[in-house]
Design a protein around this nucleic acid. Structure first.
Lengths: 188, 188
DNA sequence: TCCATCTTTTTACATATGTTAAATAATCTT
DNA sequence: AAGATTATTTAACATATGTAAAAAGATGGA
């Protein structure tokens, strides 16, 4: 569980006992490529660390899939509204490769939040970092053209470009695959 | 400080002693319309609750202001990167009306986070709620046209439409003011 | 290795949105 | 109240991106 431990300590360093309390609630599972782990409209009870593999989150809008997130090793899979407020999620999350995950329940982590101040602060830092990342994605949409954002993605997350099919990348960038082809051909 | 207290308790209910510990670090200030409270590139040491007034956050991109956030009574003014990581912010925050704010320092709140588990969980819930709100803004951009988003804003936040000039609204919606005029005229 | 399927690119055309500028409307100042 | 300034709408034109369909390329199974 190397990637998972590294992610946990990168969010907010925990003492050995607190780290133990957190890892005690984790269970390893393997999931095949193509598995739809989260479905929109459900209250999701579990959260997963990605130890190995790649995933995308999408929603259906006017009969079309809109991809709005990619994750890989070290990222967490969770439904925002289920995690925060025990409400139905709007995200479908699909594994794009065979994956190894560490699973735990929202209930377990919330129990730890109210009893262990280190883990409460871990949860705070985790939410703060997700908040920053989400804000960055929003800002990048507001400030940059699809072409710029494609090149940013090539520079900062080449593994996404290499491992994910272009129809999903185009959707993520907010353009059609035709436009992404034009971008890749250097026509803008 | 009615709006501020109400906001604090809405994020995560605090016991009387914890609420006292938090409000003890607040100072009331008044700020005139037009004041630029946060400037991009600075490490911002303070955070503010909006007790009364309205504000916008924007950045400069290619010589143009891009507005990406509005806030009013009960919202917090803070620079994401300064609050989370003590880094320079990318946001300019301008008061659009004469305002009453409650000010406190990032340092003070972080001190409380490490010593008071209730306030640590308050900070966690606050970040989680900001994360959800930011994700919602992103999703709304991805899924809805500017026209739909304008009508959503009219329905869910009419005070923003009434109190904020249309050039800022257009920027927030990600279109030019010409397009917003066409939307308002019902031409789409 | 060949065929079927899936993915990506290219083409041709339609259209929504941007740009620039002018006209109208609203607000502020003295 | 008049004039000046600022905000909003309208018009005319240019262009980037979407749509639909076909072509080209890649992948996988028998």
């Amino acid at each position: 569980m190397e990637n998972t431990i590294q992610k946990i300590q990168a969010v907010y360093p925990l003492s050995q006992p607190s780290l133990g309390a957190l890892t005690d609630v984790l269970t390893q599972i393997t999931v095949p490529k193509g598995k739809l782990l989260f479905k929109a409209g459900r209250i999701e009870k579990d959260i997963y660390f990605i130890e190995q593999g790649i995933a995308r989150a999408y929603s259906i809008q006017d009969d079309k899939e809109v991809t709005f997130w990619f994750g890989s090793e070290g990222d967490l899979l969770f439904a925002y509204n289920s995690y925060v407020a025990n409400n139905p999620g709007y995200e479908n999350i699909e594994l794009l490769e065979d994956a190894v995950l560490y699973k735990f329940s929202v209930k377990d982590i919330q129990q730890l939040y109210t009893t262990n101040i280190e883990i409460a602060n871990w949860g705070r830092k985790f939410a703060e970092q997700e908040m920053i990342k989400t804000e960055e994605r929003l800002i990048s949409r507001l400030f940059s053209s699809a072409g710029q954002r494609y090149h940013d993605l090539v520079d900062t997350a080449p593994h996404f470009i290499q491992r994910i099919q272009l129809s999903h990348i185009a959707s993520y960038l907010g353009v059609t695959q035709v436009t992404l082809s034009r971008i890749r051909a250097g026509k803008q």
